[in-house]
Design a protein around this nucleic acid. Structure first.
Length: 456
DNA sequence: GCATGATCATGC
DNA sequence: GCATGATCATGC
């Protein structure tokens, strides 16, 4: 087989060879028995590298196809119940060496040098299927498109800036838009040193977010199109949103509706108005390409004129029997809060009860606060395991049930409260009793703190 | 007045 | 019918 690294002399040759993977199952690709004998996560990539492309396995910092500067990545997707497809996971790239990455520039960074050209091999994941029966369906040479480059670059700079501030241990995937710093290691005890702090930081790798991978899959492989927010300009999401929203700070909702020709005063008036401010055709801001790619949720926050927020912010209901079996690190809540990015649009009632646009901010939960949520989650699991206490009180309105799950007073960040169609909307408890569906809520006071600097 | 339980509205 | 975001109701 000759010198490794000399097998494919041109990209075209490599692409042709890659195409032969299409339609094949891993058990038919594998010539060395890895599929049966190896449990490690990276084995599917190794099978393709070794059995299909004829390379010895290595973990060098250089690209897999060194002479072409192409890195091989094997990645799963899934079919959703509603007929769409999604990436099954984020695409994990190289581990971040905090000690050396801070001295690099974007184009000399380990991220760029190793990953600026990828050979993506997509396979379809199906629950219950043997790994050997997973099938490769598509291959693609991928380079970050020019339109995404300003945002990816800003993401990289954000990560490096955090390391420079001695906060590598506070990195979170939700900090950034397309390129994230995701946990990489056996568990949270896998740590490594950082240059500007003595606190060991969780080992992390660069990763294209799952939402970004879903976008690549849908547009580049399936040829679907979505509505772009940023059309011609070479700018990042953050800067584009700044440009559109900062000029309207201080204006009243009524003024803005008049100016933008938003006559409908429906409940979702803010969403409709903002669609016009951003100049998109549709009315669903979260469907905008850039927001989908970055997994951004838009939330309107309404502040009363006494500077309070009336309502807390809810999350999806949880199933009691499921969360008692799920450790925090694997929980849906941790995944949402660790990866989700929000765009808060803040309106406040003035002295005449008129809503004024006070400002906006991209937000994701800071690391310290995530630790508080962890406490509440684990306390909830403990109470459910011990057997939650439910007391029934008969009142004029009917029966009211009280419980001892973590409440707003117990934690500054979040609490547990009912969330169903009504009190009869129940799930089964671990002990067999039925209880009104519950979910975690962010305390209204906590949410207020996150946007306090926008409201005077 | 606030914390907590209950329910509505909407979209798929 | 259900998930999810939003909001109401009331006893302490």
């Amino acid at each position: 087989m000759g010198e490794k690294g000399a097998i494919y002399s041109t990209e075209e040759e490599l692409i042709e060879k890659a195409k032969k993977l299409k339609g094949k199952k891993f058990k038919d690709i594998d010539k060395t028995g890895r599929i049966a004998n190896q449990k490690a996560k990276g084995r599917l990539g190794q099978i393709i590298e070794e059995s299909h492309f004829g390379y010895e396995i290595n973990s060098r910092a250089e690209a897999d196809f060194k002479e072409l500067n192409v890195e091989l990545k094997v990645t799963p997707y899934k079919l959703n119940k509603n007929g769409t497809v999604s990436a099954k996971e984020r695409l994990v790239l190289n581990i971040i060496d905090y000690m050396t990455e801070v001295d690099k520039g974007f184009y000399t960074s380990s991220f760029w040098l190793k990953n600026n050209k990828l050979l993506l091999v997509f396979y379809r994941y199906e629950e219950g299927l043997d790994v050997g029966d997973y099938r490769v369906t598509d291959t693609l040479i991928f380079e970050v498109p020019e339109e995404d480059l300003p945002t990816v670059r800003q993401d990289w700079e954000f990560i490096v800036e955090k390391i420079k501030q001695g906060k590598a241990h506070e990195l979170s995937e939700g900090d950034t838009f397309y390129l994230g710093a995701c946990p990489k290691g056996k568990d949270s005890s896998s740590v490594r040193p950082q240059p500007y702090s003595d606190i060991p930081a969780m080992q992390r790798a660069y990763a294209f977010k799952q939402s970004y991978m879903t976008h690549i899959l849908r547009t580049r492989v399936l040829g679907q199109s979505t509505e772009k927010l940023i059309k011609d300009e070479r700018t990042s999401i953050q800067r584009y949103v700044d440009k559109k929203l900062s000029p309207i700070i201080g204006r009243t909702l009524n003024e803005l509706c008049e100016e933008y020709g938003q006559v409908d005063s429906a409940k979702n008036v803010v969403q409709l108005l903002m669609s016009k401010v951003f100049g998109i055709k549709g009315t669903d801001l979260s469907k905008i390409e850039e927001f989908e790619k970055a997994n951004i949720k838009i939330k309107t926050i309404r502040v009363e004129n006494d500077n309070k927020i009336r309502e807390s912010m809810s999350f999806p209901t949880f199933k009691f029997k499921e969360i008692v079996e799920t450790p925090w690190e694997e929980s849906d809540l941790k995944n949402i809060l660790g990866e989700q990015k929000y765009l808060f649009l803040v309106f406040k009632k003035d002295e005449n009860d008129e809503l004024v646009f006070k400002g906006y901010r991209f937000w994701n939960m800071p690391y310290q606060d995530l630790l508080e949520v962890k406490k509440v989650y684990e306390r909830t699991v403990d109470i459910l395991k011990e057997g939650v206490r439910i007391e029934e009180q008969v009142t004029k309105k009917g029966i009211i049930r009280k419980n001892n799950l973590p409440s707003m007073k117990d934690n500054p960040v979040c609490h547990v409260r009912p969330h169903g169609a009504n009190a009869a909307d129940v799930y089964e408890l671990p002990d067999g009793r039925l209880m009104t569906k519950q979910c975690f809520w962010l305390n209204n006071g906590y949410v207020l703190n996150q946007i306090k600097n926008l409201i005077d």
